[in-house]
Amino acid sequence: MKILVVDDSATMRRIIINHLKQAGYSDIVEASNGVEALSRMSGIELVLTDWNMPVMDGLSLVKEIRHNPNFSSVPIIMITTEGAKEEVLEALRNGVNDYIVKPFTKQIILEKIEAVVG
C-alpha cells in the first residue's frame, strides 16, 4: 500500500513513518504541505495528513482530494492537535475517514489505518 504522510513538522513525519515502517509499510511518500501533497498523489492509496500547515492546510487538502475524480475515493486520516469536537466534526463533514488527535501512540495509528483500509 502506498501511503502519503503530510505534515509541516519533519519530526512528526519521521515519527509516523517510523511507526509505519515498523508495521511493514514500506512504500511511503512525504509532503510538508497540501500543495506538495497534491503533486504527489499519483498511486497513493492512503493519506495521513496534519491540519495546520503553511501554504495549504490539511482541511483544504482534504477538500481538493475529495473534489478530484482521480483521487476522490482515497482514504484520508487526519492527525492533528485540533481535538475540539467542532473541529473533528468539520473534518469528518469534509470527507476525512478518521481522525487522530496528537499526542498518539503507534498502536493508535496502526489501529486507525486497519479500520480505514481494513
Binding site: T81, G83, V101, K102, P103
Partner: peptide, 10 residues
C-alpha cells in the same frame, strides 16, 4: 510545544 498547546486547547 505544538502538541502540548493543542492538548491544553482541547
Amino acid at each position: 510545544a505544538n502538541i502540548v498547546a493543542g492538548g491544553a486547547k482541547t
